[in-house]
Design a binder for these strands. Sequence first.
DNA 1: CGCATTTGACCCGCGC
DNA 2: GCGCGGGTCAAATGCG
Length: 174
Amino acid sequence: MENYPILFPYSSSASPFSSNMVKSHVLTEFHGNNPNGFLALKTDMNVPCSDVKSISQSGSFGGSESEEKSGKKKAEKKIRKPRYAFQTRSQVDILDDGYRWRKYGQKAVKNNKYPRSYYRCTHQGCTVKKQVQRLSKDEGIVVTTYEGMHTHPIEKSTDNFEHILNQMQIYAAC
DNA sequence: CGCATTTGACCCGCGC
DNA sequence: GCGCGGGTCAAATGCG
């Protein structure tokens, strides 16, 4: 597996942010552009929550709520799901937000030498999806696109205070 | 043993 | 009607 040069010495496979090392790393990254440390994350979100733009293509995107993927008997595919794009500066594209994600696909993007990863929330009934893509132009830029909203509590273990702090700030941004 | 990840195949919408 | 691009599924594999 072609991993990234950044390795997590901690065994927390699901908690990239669990290590203070990562924290300081991210902090440093953000600090480069924002003097607010973690708060910079929100500042770094050039695309606020109001950036709900309609996705005119990919009907499958809007059909994950309660419809199957039959793709032939869809009556209300007009409801486009909002997409939230977060552009962050990080070497790691696995930006853990506290939820459990299961990767279900990976595709290479045109005009991009890096593949795009598709993740899905493993929570039952939760249809939230997210995709992570990094720009080939700037490998330090990672675009995380969230789709849908979580209707369940975060199931992250509380072994990370920094993580929770981070979460609160993210929510506060919205 | 259970679950997350991987990777190729398949499917669908759109443009030509 | 075919080809392309993008998205998702699903079986196999690896790992904790």
